[in-house]
């Protein structure tokens, strides 16, 4: 991640005091993605989220188009990861969180109490900031999602593992040592393994929470290439601190600031002529 393009958190807080406009405005511009004809796969409406008493997301309304890559950008603490984690109810694991509003995945409400979270998470996979291989063999890591879903058939598993590893561009590197511990791989391989693991359960959506921030530049570019290939089969929503990365890999970009969605437009448009002053300030690293 490049430090130059990212404002330090302390700066972001100072801006909040200088320009109260962002916080004061309830809902900012929600530009409809006119150039994409796809039906939105995720529809977020009026989503508010509270950590105890402090509000982290303020009335977010956003539609994520199908089979495209959407990037979420914004300064640290703006709520982009929080928003991402709402989409597969990962925030359930943290105590003291409450949400209001609605999130529809394929037209189905997922914030209901009765939602089958296990089923939801199979449809909405996730890749985390730090690679988290399990203490198992490479094969078992990839097969994990299928096994816990009750898949026992050896051949199906073999096929799924190979297909997923190929999709994650890892097959050629590990095909001779599938039975060895995954912990012996390198950092970049770990992250691709985690992508293969997420792909193996064949989700509709893959959430990526800063997937390259712990990787070196070479591994980063491999993962970025991979995202480009995966968009054909999956909807990808990626949180990133690296605006160049957002520009490289995404079709749409949403800019969040202080828990508010400021601007959501096609990536090129947003980067070349931002409609909002906050966006422009953030992109240029020049605030106020």
């Amino acid at each position: 991640m490049s430090e130059a393009t990212q404002p330090p958190a302390i700066l972001a807080r100072t801006i909040a005091k200088v320009s109260p406009t962002a916080a004061a405005q309830p809902v900012v511009d929600v530009p409809t993605p006119t150039d994409t004809h796809a039906q939105p796969i995720v529809q977020v409406k009026d989503l508010c989220l509270f950590y105890g008493r402090s509000q982290a997301l303020k009335s977010i309304t956003i539609d994520f188009p199908r089979n495209q890559v959407t990037a979420l950008i914004g300064p640290s603490g703006c709520g982009k990861s929080t928003l991402l984690r709402c989409l597969n109810r990962m925030n359930d694991l943290i105590d003291d969180i409450s949400t209001t509003g609605s999130i529809l995945v394929d037209g189905q409400e997922i914030l209901d109490r009765g939602t089958d979270v296990i089923e939801l998470r199979r449809r909405v996979g996730m890749v985390f900031q730090k690679p988290t291989p399990f203490a198992k063999s490479i094969y078992e890591n990839v097969a994990y999602g299928l096994r816990i879903a009750g898949m026992r058939d050896r051949r199906t598993l073999d096929e799924a593992v190979e297909k997923s590893l190929r999709r994650a561009a890892l097959w050629d590197e590990v095909k001779d040592r599938l039975r060895q511990s995954a912990l012996g791989l390198s950092g970049g391989q770990h992250q691709r393994l985690c992508i293969a693991r997420a792909v193996a359960v064949n989700p509709e959506i893959i959430l990526m929470d800063e997937p390259c921030s712990a990787l070196d530049p070479r591994s980063t570019s491999r993962v970025e290439d991979l995202i480009g290939e995966l968009r054909e089969d999956f909807t990808i929503i990626i949180v990133t601190h690296n605006m160049l990365q957002a520009a490289r890999v995404s079709d749409q970009t949403a800019f969040l600031y202080e828990g508010v969605l400021i601007e959501f437009r096609p990536t090129q448009a947003l980067f070349t002529c931002p409609a909002k002053k906050e966006t422009e300030d953030y992109l240029t690293g020049r605030f106020g």
Binding site: M90, L93, I118, R121, F128, F134, Y144, I148, A149, C194
Partner: peptide, 27 residues
């Protein structure tokens, strides 16, 4: 064990018990 490891397991659709038995205890 890092929180990410647990969350990765949950994110693949596993229950708390499955995560404990298959991921956490081996580690």
């Amino acid at each position: 064990i890092p929180r990410g490891v647990r969350e990765s397991s949950y994110a693949l659709g596993s229950t708390k018990f499955q995560t404990l038995i298959r991921v956490l205890l081996p580690l």
